[in-house]
């Protein structure tokens, strides 16, 4: 009986959260879905799938594909840059590790928008890099307002989200496994590929999710660093809601984006499960 009571008590404790989740998560999503399934005819909402049909027109698919492409590119770049950093951090002495972590976290205390703005100053034609290039006698480069600048902005802003989970999974790994592998004659390459990498996969997967999601939905980075020439799905939604007040079409695009995100999280978690099993056997 006592056990049952405490379960009930625990359930009761969850009520505030459930209420919160209902009001701020379920209701808004239901509203978005509702709007996406309607069109406004003479001020009256009428059920229609026209918004979805429109969202699958070639120009919008192009925008969607571009978002996914840029997000995948920046996620890949984050893994390539972030994994070694996490690896080094996990293998460092305690004090140094904290310093490194600190250095990665400090910029995140600053406003995201300001940090992105400051890249403008760095990349401009008369910006820091080009001024330096000109100073040492090299020709100036056009660094701003191209897709590379957008990817750079994404990598810069989202890199910590890749490093931290990888770092966590690496540092909680049992070091004696490595010693065991070495005792059994594995060279350092084999140790990494067959032991460290598979064991850190959960971290990599959650890193990918945490980078890919904000990257595929961003609109401010492509606006500022891409000079609005790289319309992403986030820009499209922003445009529909704020600039042209077509909430219905904007909602349909949002729903499609949500489905895309849920699907990608689903795929990642299946891969995650596989890797866990792989690690076990």
């Amino acid at each position: 009986m006592a056990g049952k009571d405490s379960v009930l008590a625990r359930k009761r404790m969850a009520i505030p959260f459930l209420a919160w989740a209902f009001i701020f998560i379920v209701v808004p999503i239901a509203l978005v879905v509702y709007y996406s399934l309607c069109i406004e005819v003479d001020g009256v909402m009428v059920f229609s799938l026209a918004n979805y049909a429109r969202a699958f027109e070639p120009i919008y698919l192009k925008v969607l594909w571009r978002s996914v492409r840029l997000a995948l590119a920046s996620t890949a770049a984050c893994i390539i840059v972030g994994y070694p950093v996490a690896y080094i951090m996990a293998s460092k002495e305690y004090a140094q590790k904290n310093l490194l972590l600190f250095l990665f976290l400090v910029p995140m205390w600053m406003n995201f928008l300001l940090r992105t703005y400051s890249w403008l100053t760095i990349l401009e034609n008369n910006g820091l890099i080009n001024t330096f290039l000109a100073f040492i006698g090299l020709p100036k480069m056009s660094l701003l307002y191209n897709s590379q600048a957008v990817i750079l902005g994404m990598v810069y802003n989202f890199l910590p989200f890749m490093i931290l989970p990888i770092h966590t999974s690496l540092s909680k790994m049992d070091k004696s496994l490595i010693e065991a592998a070495e005792d059994l004659g594995a060279d350092s390459r084999q140790v990494f590929l067959r032991l460290v990498l598979p064991l850190s996969m959960p971290g990599v997967i959650s890193g990918i999710t945490m980078v890919f999601l904000p990257a595929v939905t961003t609109f401010i980075i492509s606006d500022l660093l891409g000079g609005a020439q790289f319309m992403l799905i986030g820009n499209l939604i922003e445009q529909q809601f704020l600039k042209v007040s077509n909430w219905n079409f904007g909602a349909a695009v949002s729903v499609i984006l949500m489905i895309l995100i849920i699907a990608s999280v689903g795929i990642f978690s299946i891969v995650d499960k596989d890797s866990d099993e792989g690690a076990l056997f």
Partner: peptide, 12 residues
């Protein structure tokens, strides 16, 4: 809508 679509097409 025609204007918005034209603009989206330009930027895309």
């Amino acid at each position: 809508n025609a204007y918005v679509e034209a603009w989206t097409e330009i930027l895309a």
